[in-house]
Structure formats: C-alpha cells, structure tokens
Simulated scan of single mutants.
Amino acid sequence: MSAAPTFDFLPPLLPANAGSLRAEVRDLVARERAAGRVAVKDRIGMAYNAGFSRACGEAGLIGMTWPKRYGGREATAMERYVVTEELLAADAPVRGHWVADRQSGPVILRYGTEAQRERFLPPITRGECFFCIGLSEPDSGSDLAAVRTRAVREGAGWRLNGTKLWTTNAQNSQFMIAICRTTPQDMKDRYHGLSQFIIDLSLPGVSIRPVINMAGGHEFNEVHFEDVPLAGDALLGTLDEGWKQVSAELAYERSGPERWLSTWQVLAELNATLGPALGDEAEDRIGALLAETLTLREMSLSIAGMLERGMTPNLEAAIVKDLGTRFERRTVEVTRDLAELATERGLAVPVRLGSLLASAILMMPAFTIRGGTTEILRGTIARGLGLR
C-alpha cells in the first residue's frame, strides 16, 4: 500500500547577512523617501514609481538570485526574501518591477531560450523593463483550461486574437507573458494545447483598457488582441506545454510575503493607535493577528527555502495563499470591529487608520481572487493530498 500524499513545511533559516540586507533596504527607502519617490500612503495596495524601480535596479535588488551574466547578484532565495519583506513592510512603490522580478524573470530563466534571457533579464534587473501576467479571461476566470485567446501559426510566426482580463499593471508594462491556446482542446486532457508567449504590448492590434476598482484605483486592465503578429521567438518554452510551466510559475505568485503583508499597514496602524486606547478588548484580537502573522511568515519562508533547493512546492504555496487570504480578511474585519468599538466609547478613529481601513474594505473581494480563487486553491490542495 502506497503512502498517502503529504505536505511539509521545513523549518526555514534566515541567511547570516539578513541584518545587513535589511539595513541596505532601509537606507535605500530612506533616501528615496527624501527624494519624494516613497510616500506615506493612506490606502493599501502597491504603488507604481518607475524612478524607485530604477533605484532598486541600481542597488542590485531586482533579479537578486539570477546569474551575474544577466545582471543578477547570484544571491540565495532566502536573501531575496529578506529584501522583499523589507520593501513590502516599508510600503515601497514596487509595482513597476514586481511581476518581472517575482515570476516573469524566473520563468524566462527556466524555460526561455538563451536569446530570450539575454534580451529580457538584464533590463529587468536594471528596473527598466516591466512585465504583466496574461492568465484570466472574461469567460474563464480561474479555469485556465477554458482560455479562448488563441495563437495560430502564420508563416514563421503567430497570429494572436483574444482578451485577457484583470491584468494588473498592464498600463505601465512593456511586455506580457500570456497563456494561449495553440492546439484544440482535448477533453481527456483539458490543459494540453496551451502555450506561453512573451507579447510586446506596443505591437499593432494590442489595446489596453482600464478597469477601475471599487476603491477608485486603476490597477486592473482588459487587454485585447486583434490579429496581433508575433514573431516565432515569442513562444516561451515548449509548445503546448504551457500549463505545466504556469503551474510552476504560480508557486512564486502564491507563497510570497505579499500574501500576508498587503494589509500590514492596517494592522500596524491599528496596533500603534487604537490598540493602546482600547486596552484588553484590543489586546487579545490584535495579539491573535500578530501571532498568525508570524506563523504565515514562517510558512512563506519555508517555501522560499524549497524554491532555493529547486523544489516545486505548488501544494504548500496554495495552502499559504488560502490561509493568507483568510488572514487578510480577518485583519480588516478586526480593525473595523475595533474602530466601531472606539466610536461607541467616544474615541476618535485616527484619520490615517480610517482611510487605510476604508480602502481595505473595498479591496477585500480581490483578496480571494488574485493568485487563484479560494475554490481553485482548495481544489489544488485536495488534488495534492490525493483527495480528488
């Protein structure tokens, strides 16, 4: 009898130079704040600042784990984790290079040709080249097997038609890595026949339309492709094996510290302001959130260690994403409850906390969607455990 599938979160070890890395990032943020490129925000969500991304590139903080010949510094995944954690905790405007650093670059490094690596990786590490992700579509959502965007062979290249939706930061990106159907769907294997392409968003036939969220922000976009001509070298990796590549890519997206630090500013402001004013009523609830923060951090660090060892922790990453999503919601709910309690007691809710809370409430529905819906994640977990 074979053993049941399991998952494991190995104890993580921070690098010996973690302290110096943190100091390096804090010094950079302080300099950039003095230059006006890092603001103290009153709403949650990553901000975009191309100048700050270039500063990160000059400091060697983008593509840290990549080979030096492509502009990296050959650091470990754990060293990169320390830097990422510091940037997010400081609420630095990393939106520009975020996707390219987190997953597009690693995917190109793993599956791309040498020509693709030489073309894209150096400008990414300099903070000059930004990527977005083309997965979801108007009628497919998280069911990527149902994507309708199609790339058809045309001579030595391809002809692209279709639409991608909820594409974050497409308005500021030069390139998209999109998954497209290249072979008709086989119901015996719905994920076969999908391929990844690197799409230059300046090509004729590409149109980017803003999708304004409930908080009034422009993060999402609808990207439409109408007879877009792609060169033969736009194909990334192996033809018709895009799903396998995307599955590996999602481990980068689902397990990082952004899965529990996106509401950190709310929790930190709550703890610093209303927490002391409300005493015991706040102590237990804020303490529970902080304890959960530490747990999620250890799990996320563990996955960084697995990635460093060349593992593909898709199951563990899905678990972190699911738990992180629920934690983000609880952070907002606890803050709202304590703000209401303060009002009942005649205490004023600090202006910045109120603004952060208001934006977080409006962003709550997105927590359960980005990086894969809760239902999709739990299906992934069930399959990983052999339950379906």
Score class of each variant (00 low, 15 high):
229 P>E: 02
218 H>E: 15
256 G>F: 03
238 T>L: 07
350 P>K: 06
86 E>W: 06
212 I>P: 01
32 E>H: 07
191 Y>K: 12
178 A>P: 00
30 A>Y: 04
263 T>E: 06
343 T>P: 00
123 P>E: 10
326 R>P: 00
284 D>I: 07
77 A>M: 15
1 M>L: 14
1 M>E: 14
345 R>S: 02
322 D>I: 00
183 T>A: 12
202 S>I: 04
96 G>N: 09
101 D>S: 10
78 M>C: 09
84 T>I: 05
293 T>W: 14
357 L>D: 02
375 E>Q: 06
236 L>H: 01
333 E>Q: 15
213 N>L: 10
360 A>G: 01
50 A>N: 00
380 T>K: 05
184 P>S: 07
328 E>C: 11
209 R>D: 13
277 A>P: 04
285 R>P: 00
341 L>F: 07
72 G>I: 04
355 S>V: 01
302 S>W: 05
169 N>M: 13
250 L>T: 10
42 D>W: 06
146 A>W: 02
250 L>V: 07
320 V>T: 00
108 I>D: 01
126 R>A: 15
130 F>P: 00
258 E>T: 04
66 W>E: 03
4 A>D: 08
363 M>P: 00
279 G>H: 13
94 V>W: 03
370 R>Q: 11
95 R>W: 11
194 L>S: 03
356 L>N: 01
60 G>P: 03
31 R>M: 10
186 D>Q: 07
331 T>L: 05
42 D>V: 09
130 F>Q: 01
28 L>R: 00
289 L>T: 04
122 P>H: 12
309 R>G: 10
370 R>N: 09
319 I>V: 14
73 R>K: 15
75 A>C: 07
349 V>A: 11
273 T>R: 08
216 G>H: 09
63 G>L: 03
23 A>R: 13
57 G>Q: 06
4 A>W: 07
84 T>F: 06
305 G>H: 06
37 R>V: 02
316 E>M: 09
340 E>R: 14
126 R>L: 13
266 V>M: 09
167 T>V: 15
67 P>D: 08
363 M>V: 01
12 P>W: 07
308 E>D: 15
70 Y>Q: 00
245 Q>P: 03
